[in-house]
């Protein structure tokens, strides 16, 4: 167990194992994504009230779910790097931010497009949507804060603190549809009790959520690989890699 943690802190080991995981996970993810997209777009029946516009659910919900899950990953990585000064946790935290921002952006944009035919408006300043916008700014804030510092160690520390403080936003996003009056509908999938969604719509949705998790994991690992190389540019194993790349 401890040797595993020890290895986790080793850049070349992490670089290699991340590459192996991506090599397997990426094809599976892409297949799941294609199947899920076609399934949701063309093979499911329309919603009896919303008609065909509800098909946006197959990208909107997975993007939002994984954007939130990504924040957990970033916050945990931030806490680990702050407490135990683990460099690879800092790499993980930095690598999470742009992916999380992209997914939150997808959730917001597809939500706006979905809102137009369903609510009659692109945007409302209600709790769920506003707290998701704050999530986007938190992700972008971490990206920008990293760039703002010349000293990478100080940058990592500042970002970790920002990330941990921003965690307050997460339960607010979850509970926003229950706490405040909102146009946004409450969750249809529940871990406890019956889901209020038909199985014929649930299965493609679950597949898409899995696919988005796959996309997040692959992007995170690939970002981490690139980040590791840049930070370890002066070491022999990276120099050797560059030589092999040229050959």
């Amino acid at each position: 167990m401890w040797s595993f943690f020890h290895k986790l802190g080793s850049p070349p080991w992490l670089y290699r194992i991340a590459g192996t995981i991506v090599r397997w996970l990426l094809p599976v993810t892409l297949v799941a994504l294609c199947v899920g997209l076609v399934w949701g777009l063309l093979y499911t029946a329309p919603d009896f009230r919303q008609g065909n516009s509800y098909r946006i659910i197959y990208i909107h919900v997975p993007a939002a779910v994984v954007a939130l899950a990504g924040y957990y990953v970033m916050a945990i990585a931030g806490a680990v790097s702050l407490i135990w000064k683990m460099k690879m946790a800092d790499v993980a935290m930095k690598s999470c931010a742009p992916i999380g921002a992209a997914l939150t952006f997808i959730a917001l944009v597809t939500g706006a497009i979905w809102g137009k035919p369903t609510w009659g408006t692109w945007w409302v300043w209600d709790a769920r949507i506003t707290s998701m916008l704050i999530l986007l700014f938190l992700y972008l804030g971490v990206v920008a804060l990293y760039e703002a510092y010349d000293n990478k160690e100080a940058a990592g520390k500042a970002c970790a603190v920002l990330t941990l403080v921003g965690t307050v936003n997460i339960p607010i996003i979850y509970k926003s549809v229950d706490w405040w009056y909102s146009l946004h509908q409450p969750a249809s999938i529940k871990f406890t009790g019956d889901s209020t969604i038909d199985p014929s719509m649930l299965y493609p949705l679950l597949l898409m959520i899995a696919a988005f998790y796959g996309v997040f994991t692959c992007c995170l690992l690939m970002n981490m690989r690139a980040e590791i190389l840049e930070r370890e540019a002066r070491t022999n194993w990276v120099k050797k890699l560059a030589l092999e790349y040229r050959a």
């Binding site: 777009l41 992209a102 952006f105 944009v109 597809t110 996309v215």
Partner: peptide, 22 residues
Amino acid sequence: MDGHGGFVWSAYGICLLVLMLI
């Protein structure tokens, strides 16, 4: 899609574009 095509396809298009980018 009974008039919703523009919304649905543009949402899917933007989503795929962003996923490709990341």
